[in-house]
Computed example of a mutant assay.
Amino acid sequence: MGGEKDSRAPGPRARRRGQGELEAQVLSVLGTAHEPATAAWVQEQLGGGLAYTTVITILTRLHEKKAVRRTSTGRPILWEPVADESGLTALRMRQLLDKQENRGAVLSSFVSALSLDDEHLLRSLLNETSDAPTDEAES
């Protein structure tokens, strides 16, 4: 009775999500919406297992990171993506870089750690950006 232990074996533990994985899933779901969506809709699309409050917490964090925007001030609050998963990763990288005093050292370390293929891709992207006309050049 009171002192007896439960003889049932514990169920399998849920896999712990990697950092940012849930944010990426929420962004992905919002990206499939044809219009701004409620947190309840996001929760439903993600399938069972997530509490409504967890979805609200993730949406609020994404809002603070400027990856989603609130499109209404009343109830229910509607959410829409500003960035996709790649954009969210870029936001994180930029936020980390903004916290550093020596940006040059951080960027240099980042570039030196890239694979040769990634370095070529980065050079190509930088060349495309530098070749693009600027607003000043068009004036």
Score class of each variant (00 low, 15 high):
L62G: 00
R94D: 05
A83K: 13
E101P: 07
S124F: 13
G49S: 09
A67Q: 04
Q95S: 14
L96K: 08
L121H: 15
V55G: 02
V55K: 03
A14E: 10
Q100Y: 09
Q45W: 00
L125W: 11
G31A: 04
D135E: 12
R8W: 03
M1D: 05
Y52I: 08
M1Y: 02
E64W: 01
Q45A: 14
G3I: 04
E101S: 11
E44T: 09
A132T: 11
V55F: 04
I58H: 00
V55Y: 05
P81H: 03
V29H: 04
V29I: 09
S130K: 13
N127G: 10
H34C: 02
V26C: 00
M93R: 15
R15T: 07
A83G: 04
L27N: 01
D98Y: 04
L50S: 07
T71P: 00
E101V: 13
S112G: 02
D131T: 14
I56N: 03
Q45K: 12
S72W: 06
S112I: 09
L50Q: 09
D98T: 08
L46F: 06
I77F: 00
N127W: 10
L96F: 07
Y52W: 08
T53V: 10
A67K: 02
R70G: 01
A9F: 14
Q25R: 15
T53A: 12
T60H: 08
D6I: 05
K5R: 15
E138F: 15
D135N: 12
M93Q: 11
D84A: 06
R8S: 05
R17N: 00
S109K: 08
